[in-house]
C-alpha cells in the first residue's frame, strides 16, 4: 500500500461542545480538557462560543465565561497543540473580537460563513494573514450547496489567503456519497489542504469522516465523545481508531487520544449529546445542529411539537445564526394550532 498522507486532526470539543451545554463551559473544564487534548497530541484545539468569536449573545446564547478568559486559560495549557478559534463575519468584527483573540495568543483563525457567502470572509482572512497568523476558510451548512458552488466559494477563500478549507456538515445531513463527491472535487482542485467537520444527526459522522479521508481530505474535525451541537460530532476517540487502523499518519498519541473520551465523560456529564427524535429530524430537515436546544426551549414554552418547528425551519432554508426565526416559527405554529385570534401573540 502506498504511503498515506499525514492527517491534521482538529479538536473542536471546547467550541462545538459549547452548543451542547448552552454555552456554559467553565474555566475549570477548559483547563482540564485542554491538558487532555495536549496530551493526546491533537494538532489544534478550538475554544470559544459555539458560533465563534463575538457570538455570545441573546440571539445564540450567552457564554458563561468571557471568551478572552477562555482563550487565555486554554493557551496556558497548550504547548504542541495549537489554539484555534471559529470566526463568523456578521458576528465577529476585526476590531472588537479578532484583535482580542490575537492578544490571547490564538494561532489559527478558522473564518467561516454560510457556504454560499465566501466573499464576506475576505477582510477577516486578510487581516489575520497580514498580522502573521494562520487563517483557514470554513464553509458551513455545506449540504445546502452543490459541489460546483462549494468549489467556487472555496476558491474565493483561497484567493483571500486561506491556508486550509473546511467543509462543515453543520446540520449532520450528509451521506457518505455526498462527502465523496464534494470533498473529492475540492481536494483535486484546490491548492490548500481540505478538511471535513461532521455531525452525527443521522449516525453517519464516522462514516462520513472516513469518506472524506478517502476522498482526499487532509484535515479532520472531531470532539471528545462527540461533545458538540445536535447529536454531536465525530467522536475523536473513534476517529483516532479509524485513522490508526486505516494507516493514516497523525501527530496523535493513540492511548491518550482514546483517553479524551473518559475525560469528556466526567467533565461534561449530563451535557453529552446523543441521538434523539429531535436531532434526527434536525438532520433530515437540514437545519443547523446548534438549533436543537433553542428549538426545544421555544417549543416547550409555546406548546408546539419541536419536530414541526424543525421541518418548518428546513422549509424556510434558515442558516446558522438565524436562531431568532425559531421563535417566530414556533409562535406561528402555536397560533395555527390555536386556530383563533390570528395576528395576536401566542399565550
Amino acid at each position: 500500500m502506498p504511503d498515506k498522507p499525514s492527517i491534521t486532526v482538529c479538536d473542536a470539543t471546547l467550541r462545538d461542545g459549547s452548543h451542547a451545554c448552552s454555552h456554559q463551559i467553565t474555566l475549570e473544564q477548559v483547563r482540564t480538557y485542554a491538558a487532555a487534548s495536549e496530551a493526546a497530541g491533537f494538532s489544534f484545539l478550538e475554544v470559544g462560543h459555539g458560533n465563534g468569536l463575538g457570538a455570545s449573545s441573546l440571539q445564540v446564547g450567552e457564554s458563561l465565561v468571557p471568551e478572552g478568559e477562555m482563550l487565555r486559560a486554554a493557551k496556558a495549557c497548550l504547548r504542541r497543540t495549537k489554539l484555534s478559534v471559529h470566526v463568523i463575519p456578521g458576528f465577529a468584527t476585526i476590531q472588537r473580537d479578532i484583535a482580542g483573540a490575537l492578544d490571547a495568543g490564538v494561532d489559527l483563525f478558522r473564518v467561516g460563513c454560510h457556504c454560499t457567502e465566501a466573499d464576506i470572509t475576505q477582510r477577516h482572512i486578510g487581516h489575520v494573514r497580514s498580522v502573521g497568523r494562520e487563517a483557514w476558510g470554513v464553509l458551513m451548512m455545506s449540504h445546502m450547496a452543490s459541489k460546483d458552488v462549494l468549489l467556487e466559494e472555496a476558491k474565493k477563500m483561497q484567493s483571500y489567503g486561506a491556508q486550509g478549507i473546511v467543509l462543515m456538515d453543520s446540520a449532520g445531513a450528509y451521506f457518505p456519497a455526498d462527502v465523496t463527491e464534494k470533498i473529492g472535487l475540492l481536494a483535486s482542485r484546490l491548492d490548500v489542504p481540505v478538511g471535513f467537520h461532521a455531525h452525527d444527526n443521522l449516525g453517519l459522522s464516522i462514516a462520513n469522516s472516513l469518506a472524506a479521508l478517502e476522498a482526499g481530505a487532509r484535515i479532520i474535525d472531531g470532539t471528545a465523545k462527540g461533545f458538540g451541537a445536535g447529536a454531536g460530532n465525530a467522536p475523536l476517540e473513534l476517529l483516532a481508531a479509524v485513522l490508526r487502523q486505516r494507516g493514516y499518519p497523525t501527530s496523535l498519541d493513540f492511548y491518550r487520544a482514546l483517553d479524551v473520551a473518559g475525560v469528556a465523560e466526567k467533565l461534561f456529564a449530563g451535557s453529552l449529546p446523543g441521538a434523539s427524535d429531535i436531532t434526527i429530524v434536525s438532520g433530515l430537515a437540514g437545519v443547523f445542529s446548534g438549533f436543537a436546544k433553542p428549538v426545544q426551549r421555544a417549543a416547550t414554552q409555546l406548546g408546539v411539537d419541536p419536530r414541526d418547528v424543525f421541518f418548518e425551519l428546513g422549509r424556510r432554508k434558515v442558516v446558522g445564526g438565524q436562531e431568532d426565526i425559531i421563535l417566530e416559527v414556533a409562535n406561528e405554529l402555536a397560533r395555527r394550532q390555536a386556530g383563533a385570534n390570528p395576528g395576536s401573540p401566542a399565550p
Binding site: S57, G90, F91, H114, T116, Q322
Partner: peptide, 9 residues
C-alpha cells in the same frame, strides 16, 4: 450588539 445574517434562499 448587532448581528447580520445573509441568507441565499
Amino acid at each position: 450588539k448587532a448581528i447580520l445574517n445573509l441568507n441565499p434562499a
